[in-house]
């Protein structure tokens, strides 16, 4: 072992995720402790009529779990306030730079006057490649984050959600096969529809 090797090991040993960050990552991932198969196995001896009822309950629990995970991930990504990879106020330029996504990075229509675009970068939502655009709200001065990713069956269950998670206002919606999320402020904000 050389000195260089030991210094390299020390260098990487110092690089650590915080406990809080690890907790966030674990929370945003699908829970492994209660996969559906386990529940079904445990309920195998229950009468068929009860299975039907529990199936409905299970569906709602799974849906609620998905919503919680997506909310946690969006709130976490927003809270990190990562630097943009493409710093530009021109949404077309940002979209051209983030060309690995073959979806529109913003809802259709005119760009709302309320938000100034600061730039964008890639991120992920539930394992799928997504874009996140950093915005400044002219009305409040707050930073908001607009996400766009391809709609999946999981995400489809949480569209039309507007709530507050970890003190971050979050709104989900869809436009065609694109899933959008807007995070920022203390209460959920809708994407302005009628802009000048």
């Amino acid at each position: 072992m050389t000195d260089l090797d030991s210094h390299l090991r020390e260098h990487y040993a110092r690089a650590r995720l915080s406990d809080a960050r690890i907790g966030q990552i674990l929370a945003a991932a699908p829970a492994r402790a209660t996969p559906p198969r386990v529940w079904y196995a445990r309920l195998g001896s229950v009468a068929a009529a009860l299975v039907v009822g529990l199936g409905v309950l299970h569906f709602h629990l799974v849906e609620r779990d998905i919503a919680a995970r997506v909310l946690a991930e969006v709130a976490m990504n927003h809270g990190k306030q990562l630097d943009v990879e493409i710093a530009s106020g021109d949404v077309a330029l940002v979209a051209a730079a983030l060309d690995r996504l073959d979806i529109p990075l913003r809802p259709p229509g005119q760009w709302p006057a309320r938000y100034a675009l600061l730039g964008g970068r890639y991120c992920s939502i539930q394992g799928g490649l997504a874009a996140q655009l950093k915005l400044r709200d002219h009305e409040t001065g707050d930073l908001h984050t607009l996400y766009a990713t391809r709609l999946t069956s999981d995400l489809e269950t949480v569209v039309d959600t507007a709530t507050t998670y970890d003190d971050v206002g979050i709104t989900f919606w869809r436009d065609g096969d694109v899933f959008f999320a807007l995070a920022g402020g203390e209460t959920p904000n809708a994407w302005p529809q009628d802009s000048d």
């Binding site: 995720l17 960050r21 990552i25 674990l26 945003a28 991932a29 699908p30 492994r32 996969p35 559906p36 198969r37 991930e73 990190k80 990562l82 890639y122 991120c123 992920s124 539930q126 394992g127």
Partner: peptide, 15 residues
């Protein structure tokens, strides 16, 4: 950080 987060999710997708 992003890489790890996404990888972790993909590993745990579908239980």
């Amino acid at each position: 950080d992003d890489l790890v987060q996404e990888a972790w999710y993909r590993l745990h997708r579908h239980g």
